[in-house]
Design a protein around this nucleic acid. Sequence first.
DNA 1: CCTACCGATCGGTAGG
DNA 2: CCTACCGATCGGTAGG
Lengths: 241, 241
Amino acid sequence: MLKTPPGSPTDVEAPESALVLAPRRPRGRPRKTEQERDDGNRRLALIRVAARLFRQQGYAGTSTRDIAQAAGMHSGSPFYHFKSKSALLCAVIEEGVRNAVVRQTEGLQALPVDDANPAARLRVLVRQHLDVLLGDDSDFVPVMLYEWQRLDPSQRAPIQHLKSAYEALWMPALLALQASGQLRASVGLARLMILGALNWSVQWYDPAGAATLDDLTDAALALFLKEPERSGSVKLEPNWA
Amino acid sequence: MLKTPPGSPTDVEAPESALVLAPRRPRGRPRKTEQERDDGNRRLALIRVAARLFRQQGYAGTSTRDIAQAAGMHSGSPFYHFKSKSALLCAVIEEGVRNAVVRQTEGLQALPVDDANPAARLRVLVRQHLDVLLGDDSDFVPVMLYEWQRLDPSQRAPIQHLKSAYEALWMPALLALQASGQLRASVGLARLMILGALNWSVQWYDPAGAATLDDLTDAALALFLKEPERSGSVKLEPNWA
DNA sequence: CCTACCGATCGGTAGG
DNA sequence: CCTACCGATCGGTAGG
């Protein structure tokens, strides 16, 4: 990597006294830099705002004008950042699944190397999944769950890999639990039903209600596992709060 | 109840020979009757066709013109039967939930009076629920699951009663299973998670695939219940096929 | 990113 | 239920 050598033009600072009369920074190419950063910010702002509106009103029920206004832009501007409305939906979904994969991977790696307790692995998977669905900044994955069908096949393909990667993260724990008799039914159907039970929570969960996400996690494990978890099991890092 | 007495006018059949020259039935008031029956037929046709399109394309993604065309009408005609697009959505949802309540009630009543086997009750509930979601003529309830939020509060109220009635049908079996140690977790959360696991199947179930609805039922009970069902349990009438 | 605009389509209605 | 139509709104674009 090349570092800008000391003394190069872009490194030169105007003397303090000059700022009074000429408050602007050297004119080298600040525009370009600011433009790039703003582009990223505005693009990300559009994705965030679109995720929220798509979740609240549905994809077809949200106009690109709604999104532009919520992002503080005018009606045509989203199309400077995204070539179409569905490309914006793609970006929302991809951002959501990518983030979910990252969080699950990190959460599982934070477990002790002692892999002998698959129930602890399932607990991590369930808890993080609920946080991705119901926690702060949690509009992306719900949009995927309910608007996935609106994408045409060519748009689904790149995201399908991420979805498969996410689902694959569940398999080792489920296989181990099945082998130890803690889980019955085929792992394939068990995975679909467990994820379904959790995904359905976006329809009824009330963050202001009595149940916390930890409560839901307890209930899910109690429902799916044949025996109570070993109490000597691992304590989890609270890094998902 | 009053039965039409024999020999009353509506009971009179024109002799066979008369049908050749005067094939039409007595002209008393056939128009009115036909009109009423046709109204019902066209209205029901609209509900059926709307259910299918709402499920495939979503509520906002389906135009009233799409629906009219699929029902063989012109663009303005649906508004002769329904005062608005959302009133049509209401009718679809109400029809779906009402039918589901009827089927579950009948299915449970067909069980032997020997109520001592709550697992058998749960099996009936799960199996019928899957058939309502995935069987023939199964677009209505999925539409409710995914478009419920599009109704405004005044539209939800009448349907909410039916939804509550449907959910209440599950409680006796779940409470009995919990009491016998066959089900852990609170019954409230267990009901939500079990229904969620089943409802999610509309996203992935392929009728042409290997798994049958009976397979899904087996998997669900194996996943949720702590011990295998007693093999001496009831045989179910196959009246839902 | 804004301005100004396009053709298409939307839910719904009057009048028969 | 059809015909003819309304105002509103839609996704998207050219040109700057």
